[in-house]
Amino acid sequence: MAKTIKEKKPKIKPGKLEKREARMGYVFVAPWLIGVVLFLLYPLGQSFRYVWYNIRITPVKTNFIWVGTGNFTQIWLENAEFPQQLVTYIWQTIVEVPIIVVFALMIAIMLNGKIKMRGFFRLIFFLPVIIVSGPVMNMLVSEGASTIPSMNVQTIISAFNTFLPLKAAQGVGEIFSNMIMILWYSGVQILIFLSALQKVDPALYEAAKIDGGSGWECFWKITLPTIKPMILLNAVYTVIFLSGNEQNQLINMIENAMFSGTKEKGYGYASAMAWMYAVVVTLIVLLFFLLLGSKKDSYDRMADRRKKALKKEERLHRKIQRRNRRNAGKRERALSSGKYKTYDGSGDY
């Protein structure tokens, strides 16, 4: 009896149709797979190999000279600029990403309200995405078009210096002097937030209003939890954008090191720089993941608890069923062996 029950629920093996479907999946993904091997994994492995070598290119052939961790020690001990720029980059990214994201959210909320000329404002705020590129930015910055002349950064720094240490005050000043750049980097983020905001169910706001919730409460309890995944998405997007941007001194340094004709620099040296840079970028992305991704709000936690309880109940239920079946089998066997009589309803056994 027990055996037959087991046979009723066989382990599901992929059938012919499913196998064929899976094969089609591979066919569709195949170009990308080849590309990954050719343009991602192979270069990645190669660059990991380069890190340990000093590579000199002669017209005849390329010479690989094993230096071990030599490239790293050289970068950290002899190159004054790279570590400094790396620290600046980390500091800048960690400060600028929240500013950009919060700013984009603010603009998106304003644009999401009932205002006239919404299309026109959208047009303006999205314009930088179209025209922003390294050389254009460099040109504008070098001609002083990126700072508003009436904004006196020095005054702002000294004002903040009264209650902040100089370093932090300078950071704040830096933000103000780069205000336009920071604003210009938030075009895509605004659009992503905007389209997320439009998908929030208006019935939620109505319900909250009936229960006497203010606009402020609605923002924290409804808007923010709903668009939370988008905040993470935007933060990651911003980090990647800032790290690949040509305003970023580090990537120019890597390029320069790659083609500098000096003996100690070259491909290996540049690869070592690039790897350290990549690790830092990944760590920053991870940081934002931890900050924004893992935390669940109380409702999520409640739902999780309920789900767990439900599962437990189900398990118990199954256990009881199993026991019942076992017992049923036993009883049947006992009955068929003729040891016991069945109760025929007549009153005596």
Binding site: L40, Q46, Y50, I240, A278, T282
Partner: peptide, 13 residues
């Protein structure tokens, strides 16, 4: 591959 800065694979590429 999106997170990875292109500088890492740039030289071998």
């Amino acid at each position: 591959s999106y997170i990875l800065p292109s500088q890492v694979t740039m030289i071998p590429t």
